[in-house]
């Protein structure tokens, strides 16, 4: 039995489904091509501060990723936290994406940072088909791309897309989770790709990105 759709739960889609999707894709593509670079999608799709109440979408960057990349060909898995809100309704309505129960079967998975406990449930692709892997969209409490002279930072990234190295910070990320990202890189070319979102902000860490836990300075 399917429930009747409550239209009040629907977030607004792109103003222009063609050109906004293109602009969003270019930012997502740049983000993944330059891991650790922070990008803001509020110019394409308003963040929660810019929206009037009633249409409040706290996950604007994650939703922009969905509007840009998801359709009937992309099985989606939602974590328990992500299943609580209106995301599922909106993914079904706007993207027509099938929502699956098994994370392994999903080409895109939406979760919150505290739910990132293991990569075991997700599909890393296979040796002969490493691209048949899942992409994880992880909503985090805070994201920062830091200047190279920063003394306090969460992680230091290097690898393709990064000229030398890049310092970043993800609020509330645990050492075990950083270790998960390192393990993910170690099994390259297998692995998952990460799109970290925070409101309208987006930062990517690809499976090709080598990362070291950072220094915690005085401030």
């Amino acid at each position: 039995m399917s429930k009747a759709l409550n239209t009040r739960q629907l977030w607004r889609p792109f103003n222009d489904p063609v050109l906004d999707a293109q602009a969003a894709f270019r930012q997502i593509m740049r983000a993944l091509a330059e891991p650790g670079n922070l990008t803001d999608l509020s110019g394409i799709y308003p963040g929660k501060d810019q929206l009037s109440s009633g249409m409040l979408n706290p996950l604007s960057a994650a939703f922009v990723v969905a509007l840009t990349l998801l359709d009937q060909d992309t099985p989606v898995w939602l974590s328990p936290v992500m299943s609580q809100g209106e995301l599922a309704t909106n993914l079904r309505f706007h993207c027509d994406a099938p929502i699956v129960d098994a994370p392994k079967a999903a080409s895109f998975a939406f979760l919150s940072l505290e739910e990132l406990e293991s990569l075991e449930p997700f599909n890393p692709g296979s040796e002969t088909h490493p691209y048949q892997s899942g992409t994880l969209i992880v909503e985090v409490p805070g994201l920062a791309s830091l200047p190279s002279q920063a003394s306090s930072y969460g992680m230091i990234l290097s690898g393709p897309g990064i000229a030398d190295s890049r310092k970043i910070a993800i609020d509330s990320i645990k050492p075990q989770q950083i270790h998960l990202l390192q393990q993910n890189h170690e099994r390259f070319p297998l692995g998952c790709d990460f799109l970290f979102t925070c409101g309208s902000a987006l930062m990517a860490i690809s499976r090709s990105t080598d990362l070291q836990a950072g220094e915690q300075g005085e401030n």
């Binding site: 990349l69 992309t74 691209y131 892997s133």
Partner: peptide
């Protein structure tokens, strides 16, 4: 194609 491009970028 965009999804394929992202995979290509992730696995140079």
């Amino acid at each position: 194609i965009r999804r394929a491009i992202l995979k290509g970028i992730a696995i140079p």
